[in-house]
Write a protein that binds this DNA or RNA. Structure first.
Lengths: 296, 296
DNA sequence: AAAATGTTCTTTATTAGTAAAGAACCGAAT
DNA sequence: ATTCGGTTCTTTACTAATAAAGAACATTTT
């Protein structure tokens, strides 16, 4: 056997979502146009069209591609089947590590992990290699992978590194004359106010906004090494949020308010205040991260 | 087929080097002791002993392992065969990239690279994945690896990041009360003086000493993220040294003298001077790196 | 002539199978 | 009794084979 057609299935689902915006009798664009839309090759587009014709959604004769009926929920492939294996592996791996609360020192076997996560072995391998620099796992030459555990020490070192790098990035942001940054800040203010206004449990959108806010800061450094570290932080912090739900609402709202303080100080150009609000925020973030570990 | 016995061959070579220190008629230690010495499993040790007996170097009967004759140069396996594939792959890959002077945008194909470097495909794969965060290569989903090239921009970003992190590490070193650090510094002074005294072309030892010196500094931060970045720097700088040989002697001696200044300021406890000498050194390092690119 | 389609050729990702290296167990010798 | 050696069992790493996905070329239609 070979690979599992994830690209094809993802293509079908994207195509179905597009077809839902049309009316029966409408014509689809050219294969090349669809390839652009589905972000894939024409080869895959043709496979998708053939599939759509087979299930009777469209009539396909040469360059005529006519929509017969609107897509039905059952036409879609289930989400996991239509996710790229790399993304799937990462999601499931992190969730597994967090949920099963494995003890530090646990040995991870590629084949075993692959079976547990239901993803191909090479993907697990790639994932583990990519993850090693994060410091959560380690490999002994010619031996196996071991879990290092999310210790207080780890959290402290991460927070230290973050303070150093994000602090520098923020300093550059303040020094920058780029109007684009102010525009992004204004947009951030809007989004923060909007999220704070919603009293409900819509805090599920918080991690994404939090990551976006910090990405704006890191981006100001215009340095690929900064950006890379930002990604790591957001990954670890994101899964930390997912894991530690206690006081979530209170904690997230506090963070949003701290963000707003920083944003507003930037917008009015009060650099001293901005700097101070930023340091405060990083301190809060550090405390939250460290606290979440000791309460495990 | 399967794997290429690198561990075994490396074991044989290490064992031969050990035997060269003995006299014919001497007895070898137990299998467990040899396993400790060769840094490998007893299974491999027994394979090595069998090999040594086969080529008539030792007589092996149960627990009696008697040296028959001293090892000959021809008994050793050639170095590349006896190197762990991961190290071999890394060495050859970097050398290949630097030497063949590939244009940015060049497509790297795993199988092709594996053939060129004469290393197994999985090793190339692992190497490329590990290398991606260094920013020299990139992967497009479902497509191939492309070389980003060692640009001036890259060098600048690397130097910026280095100044930030190593600067912080050095500040912690100065603040530290740890006597171990002073001891390491004294040892560094000795090694630097020794290398500077040798007028000859023994500068081949410079990269190792340079890396060791900076490792002492990064280690003072006691932060795994600092250490990891230090590794990257040393890797890139090392290969930059190897590639750019012009003015090598002059450049290396200058660097050694700058190191000495820093070391001595630390030893006498003059923090202001140490700090200043360190900043100067980082500036020199940056200039050297950037210059080496523009002269390609 | 231009654009879209049909066809063919590469390249990549995955699985299965096999040999090397590691680990554990048990019996023998000091 | 304890250390050492023989044996067996696991686990890992590599090769090879195969199907999916991408890319290029040729052909057809407007």
């Amino acid at each position: 056997m070979s690979r599992g057609q994830q690209t094809f299935k993802l293509g079908v689902n994207t195509a179905l979502a597009h077809l839902a915006t049309l009316q029966p009798g409408d014509r689809l664009g050219s294969e090349a146009a669809l390839a652009e839309l589905l972000q894939t090759s024409r080869t895959t587009v043709r496979a998708v069209l053939k599939h759509l014709a087979d299930i009777g959604l469209i009539e396909w004769l040469g360059r005529d591609k006519i929509l017969r009926r609107l897509p039905d929920p059952v036409d879609f492939f289930p989400k996991p089947e239509a996710t790229l294996p790399a993304d799937l592996a990462e999601e499931r791996f992190l969730e597994w590590v967090m949920r099963s609360d494995l003890a530090p020192g646990t040995v991870l076997r590629e084949v075993e992990v692959a079976r547990i996560l239901s993803v191909p072995v090479p993907q697990v391998r790639e994932l583990l290699i990519r993850f090693e620099p994060n410091g959560l796992i380690e490999k002994n030459t010619h031996k196996n992978w071991v879990l290092n555990g999310f210790t207080a020490q780890f959290a402290t070192e991460l927070a230290d590194m973050r303070a150093l790098i994000e602090g520098e990035a923020f300093a550059r942001l303040l020094a920058s004359q780029d109007a684009g940054i102010l525009r992004q800040m204004a947009e951030m203010e809007r989004l923060h106010i909007a999220l704070l206004a919603r009293e409900d449990a819509a805090m599920s959108e918080f991690p994404a906004l939090d990551a976006a806010f910090h990405r704006v800061i890191f981006a100001a450094a215009q340095n690929r090494f900064f950006d890379e570290f930002a990604q790591r932080i957001s990954l670890i912090v994101h899964y930390h949020y997912q894991w530690n739900k206690c006081d979530e609402q209170v904690r997230n709202r506090a963070a949003l308010r701290e963000h707003l303080q920083i944003i507003r100080a930037c917008l009015v150009g009060d650099k001293a205040l901005a700097r101070q609000a930023f340091v405060t925020h990083l301190e809060t973030a550090r405390r939250t991260l460290v606290a979440s570990i000791s309460t495990r």
